[in-house]
Design a protein around this nucleic acid. Structure first.
Lengths: 234, 234
DNA sequence: GTCTATAGCCGGATAGAC
DNA sequence: GTCTATCCGGCTATAGAC
């Protein structure tokens, strides 16, 4: 994947490529709706295609077909394939972050961690393609989102790790390495989307049901809580 | 990735494409060595390139350069790009399997599971590119190795799951869902290769050291054993 | 068995009609 | 703002000299 040289400005990443010039004075509101709907359709289609084929394997023609639009329209809303890919990634990242709210010093470890795991698993079940696009980007060295990982994500994990260490100091749980704990939770939940063929094959099913996700969630919550020395019953 | 229509015969997958015709009677042994060395070089280079770029993103030219060979030689040893990719995958799969030997009814759960986790983590640390090629194949729906997953892998996991259930019946550990336990172990170890950029970013390091892997292994072993109710300290 | 040169195709991007 | 037709670069695969 040779997208490392990507350097377009941020506003080009959200489909505003041509808009800056087009929005002379007061544009009719109807046009805005058309644009928003088209952009939403394209992003949805792109997420699916990028998830299945990766960046290089996906073609603009495939995405256009999935979005029910002529290929040229994609290039109208997103100047390049890389810009479209970035927009899909940005959307995914926005989903990924706001899940850690429950991890606060004044919360109980058992409920906070259990809720976090449940939220992560739920996100995996409801947005498997987003998870796959993200995984693909990681696999190939995170050329697009390396900066985000080192800034926003690191800051967030640093903060939440302190909370977990605080809990351990209070004797509410074992002294674990909080960062590696996060790696385990992320990996164990996202694997149900990223490695779905393997999971399905081993379970002998064509696809995962709601019951499968519930079973996986329940077991993982129990494993993590008990493994961290958190007494959840009482 | 449009490799689903792949249907070459098995012997073409191992670089024997032209050999059947070339090996008229007794071929000189030196030639064999040249071939073996070239094939090994190509496979090594291909693994690296496929891991970094995925199937579609990788180019035969890149692989040729990495293997220090002209591009046409790749097509001599492996008729097509897909055949080369399959060969890399096959090599990876052979690494993946033989790690479960220690999980036997007569073994102690604590040592057997701990050793299994350590072995998996060691494989991740020493063959990160193999892990990434495998992950990439999973992400894209496992078009090449779906059959392997449903046959060999499922059979293996079914067998080992019975062992774990047997241990639980004996009261040596909790009753856990063995299949989901395997998913957690696989995901938690492979994430250090597949999601390495994320791990490095969060830890604030440029690359993972031996000490990082040891720390990760130690924590994961403790988490899993304790989480499964296995008393490892007598 | 090795390599250069090239055929042939495919995909991203765009020009320009409507 | 939408779409058809097309350009152009890059990639796989192979022909054919050595």
């Amino acid at each position: 994947m040779r997208v490392t040289e990507f350097s377009a400005r941020a506003d080009a990443l959200r489909g505003n490529a041509h808009r800056a010039g087009a929005a002379v004075a007061a544009a009719p509101r109807r046009k805005e709706h058309i644009r928003d709907a088209a952009v939403a359709d394209i992003l949805r289609a792109a997420e699916r295609v990028f998830a299945r084929a990766g960046f290089s394997g996906a073609t603009m023609a495939e995405i256009a077909e999935a979005a029910n639009l002529p290929k040229a329209n994609l290039h109208y809303y997103f100047r390049t394939k890389v810009a479209l890919y970035r927009a899909v990634l940005d959307h995914t990242l926005s989903l990924w972050l706001a899940q850690t709210d429950g991890i606060r010093r004044d919360a109980a470890p058992a409920t906070a961690l259990a809720e976090y795991i449940r939220a992560k698993m739920h996100l995996t079940a409801t947005h498997p393609d987003a998870s796959r696009v993200f995984a693909n980007e990681m696999l190939h060295g995170a050329p697009q989102i390396g900066g985000y990982l080192r800034r926003e994500l690191k800051a967030l994990v640093d903060e939440k790790s302190q909370v977990i260490e605080h809990w351990a100091t209070l004797g509410l749980m074992d002294h674990v390495d909080a960062r590696h704990l996060f790696f385990t939770i992320w990996a164990s939940t996202q694997t149900y989307a990223d490695f779905q063929p393997q999971v399905c094959a081993v379970l002998g099913k064509a696809k995962l049901t709601r019951a499968d996700y519930e079973r996986a969630t329940k077991q993982l919550v129990r494993l993590i809580l008990k493994g961290c020395g958190i007494n959840s019953k009482v």
